[in-house]
Design a protein around this nucleic acid. Structure first.
Length: 386
RNA sequence: GGAGGGGUUCCCGAGUGGCCAAAGGGAACAGACUGUAAAUCUGUCGGCGUAAGCCUUCGGAGGUUCAAAUCCUCCCCCCUCCA
């Protein structure tokens, strides 16, 4: 099976935007369908980007990724800097050559690790001092250094270093953090001015859960000539409704003619809401992590494959899915592999969950082009309503 | 035949007078996971009850004691070594 082809190919697919060029092809309400040019090919949006933190989408190969229809994957600056080291990656042909993934790559800056490894770091106005989670050694990340590391990795889309504000942070903390994120964003862009290379650079809006601070952050960040803009600091513990509300509140402050990226989000519903708010790019560990932990996304909703009810179930996981896993194996077998902790379980489950997410994204894009996005959104909401 | 060791809740296994429905692990059952320190974590796990609590349970039978998985007697079964 080769990479999924879009039914809407034809006129649309013939567009080959230049590097950093973002073209909108259709709108449906606030939802947008577009194309973004990168050094390693064109990305059709809305797009979901599987997370491959350490230069690998856990459990599957680049070939699996292509078969499942992935256009772009993520890597992580912090993790690849620590191991194997960005210099080594650079000498091995950059992340594309090293991992043998010839399609676009986006690298996260390590901003999320400022949040998730909070016990192991110290923030100053200069940058962040980390203690390696691997060996405890100390490392300093300045915004400029983070850009340099990402250029070594040669990612197509680089993210600026930011501080992902924890949920529940009070206003004074959030104000201070926002100022830092803006300052770091400026330094990042100054260190690598627009047009000085093929690596795109995206800015990140923070501001916690204060709408006026979100607005302020968006205004400050969008003043800087970035190639795209991201909303950070979501899905950090807030209720989904709250996230949706803030995401909808933020997008009006983002330029219409640049790609908009909702970082770290989310569930199928979250992504639909994000698209409805006018966002174009998404990434999340959920489909891959949940696959490894036995939760699978299907046209019938979430399926916990370890459940006893599937012990003797000869039917495919999702009859409406055409992925390798669903074409080939029964629920009973998938359950057995999971319960027995067989390594194949992780691969088959990951293939399926990504196939589900990426098919959903294709459907979203097609529905925007066809002008019936709301209908599709309602269908998915019904599927995943608890 | 002799000497020694042992039989504990689905399994392994701790417990040697009360704080024991009985540690711990496994299995089983269920849940969580959102820019990945996650192939991880959490809960339940004798029966009834919302609960206090009551009932049944530590190879079997009987006994000592206010109180026994724990002490005594007999019996059944398993393992090791010596004949």
């Amino acid at each position: 099976m080769s990479m999924q082809q879009e039914p809407d190919s034809g006129s649309v697919a013939e567009q080959q935007p230049g590097i950093g060029e973002f073209t909108l092809q259709a709108r449906d309400g606030l939802a947008r369908a577009g194309v973004l040019g990168t050094a390693h090919g064109t990305i059709r949006t809305p797009v979901f980007m599987p997370v491959g933190t350490q230069g690998s989408v856990k459990a599957i190969s680049p070939q699996d990724l292509e078969e499942v229809g992935a256009q772009i994957i993520l890597g992580n600056t912090y993790h690849l800097y620590l191991r194997p080291g960005h210099d080594l990656v650079e000498s091995m042909g950059g992340l594309h050559g090293f991992a043998n993934w010839q399609h676009p790559i986006l690298t996260d800056s390590g901003g999320f690790q400022v949040y998730s490894l909070s016990a192991l770091r110290r923030i100053t106005s200069e940058g962040v001092e980390f203690q390696s989670h691997i060996d405890g050694s100390k490392h300093f990340f300045a915004p400029e250094k983070v850009v340099r590391i990402q250029r070594s990795l040669n990612s197509d889309i680089m993210m600026v270093l930011d501080e992902c504000v924890p949920y529940g942070a009070d206003r004074p903390y959030t104000v201070q953090s926002l100022a830092l994120t803006t300052e770091w964003a400026k330094r990042s862009r100054n260190h690598y001015p627009k047009g000085s290379g093929d690596n795109l650079l995206f800015g990140i809006v923070q501001g916690g859960f204060f709408m006026d601070l979100r607005k302020q952050s968006a205004e400050e960040i969008t003043e800087i000539p970035f190639d795209g803009f991201a909303l950070g600091g979501f899905s950090v513990g807030e209720k989904p409704e709250m996230m949706h509300e803030f995401v909808h509140g933020c997008t009006p402050f983002l330029p219409d003619d640049k790609p908009r990226y909702l970082m770290g989000v989310g569930t199928p519903i979250d992504i639909l809401e994000g698209v409805a708010a006018g966002l174009d790019m998404f990434d999340c560990v959920l489909p891959t992590r949940n696959a490894r932990n036995g939760t699978l996304y299907t046209s019938q909703g979430k399926v916990n494959i370890k459940r006893a009810e599937y012990k003797r179930d000869p039917s495919p996981l999702d009859p409406e899915c055409d992925c390798y896993t669903c074409r080939t194996f029964s629920k009973a077998y998938l359950r057995h592999l999971y319960v027995a902790k067989e390594l194949l379980s992780y691969r088959l489950n990951t293939i399926h969950n990504l196939a589900f997410y990426l098919r959903m994204m294709r459907e979203i894009r097609q529905s925007i082009l066809a002008g019936n996005f709301e209908l599709l959104k309602a269908r998915y909401q019904a599927q995943f309503s608890a």
